[in-house]
Amino acid sequence: MLTKESHLKRNIFGKDIEMAPTRDGYGIGLVEVAEKNVNVVALSADLTESTRAAKFRDLYPDRFIQMGVAEQNMVTVAVGLALQGKIPFVSTYAVFSPGRTWDQIRISVCYNNANVKLAGHHAGLSVGPDGATHQALEDLALTRVLPRLTVLAPCDAEEARKATHAAAAIKGPVYLRFSREKSPVFTTAQTPFTVGKARVLHDGKDAVIIACGPLVYEALVAADRLVEKGISVRVINMASIKPMDEETVERAARECRAVVTAEEHQVAGGLGGAVAETLARSYPVPVEMVGMRDSFGESGQPEELWRKYRLNAAAMVDAVIKVIKRKH
């Protein structure tokens, strides 16, 4: 059953559910935080439309900086701006930042504790036809190992908007992960979002699916399907990858005794790895991981890719059945 306190939309499994990419929520959130705080500035490396920084540019041209296709310089210029009190939001594809700019992020942003907000777009396999080169499947691993960096992977456009607000409010570096493809907008303005807190969206006791990004919706679909099979599954939205809500993870492991993780990312070093690290320290139970397994993606439609690489609700149903069989 969907939890009341998560205030999700009604009839989230209906065909008419609103669809929007999480990057849209970033674009809206960016304009909202800019309206509230004159220090918010935005930088783009020749990807202003597709990273949804265009509305900010049009509304606040004096606070927008076109950086050209020069991501390394973009991140470090943002550091210089941040050290003078600006709150720079840096937008490009995740394959380029943190992909190309990791050294800049490690030293000039994180070690320097600069108040820079890094927006990594087009994360995950659902980038689709552009293919493996543009599908960031490693960015969570790259960012969550960095001290002082907060890492957020919102589950839908509404949560992306809230995550953008949260990033602006944090004094310190933040990485935000966004998707290109439309996905169901199933949370509402009332759905709580707190950095460092995981949210139980669906109650259950036989197993728990811990997911992030657009796969949270797929996890809810999987849980709904499993009800028919008499299996009760808890679903946790782990939007805050770092800091991670270890207490909620441990409690779920104690109560459900079987865990499935789900992410549009390599399972090594990503959400799967992070949850496994936590459980190994606190309460080890069987874990199955839905995600990329040491392979690159390829061109194709998002749905086709999710099916081929087993990142959808069907894959999660199978993973839940498998992990329950492994229960002690």
Binding site: I65, Q72, N73, V75, T76, V77, A78, V79, G80, L81, A82, L83, Q84, G85, K86, P88, D103, Q104, R106, I107, S108, Y111, N112
Partner: peptide, 21 residues
């Protein structure tokens, strides 16, 4: 004014500072 070590980053930071000014 800023942490520095890995080469090729400081001039960008200074440029960001000058841009802010």
């Amino acid at each position: 004014e800023s942490t520095a070590a890995s080469l090729g980053q400081g001039l960008s930071i200074a440029a960001g500072c000058a841009y802010a000014a």
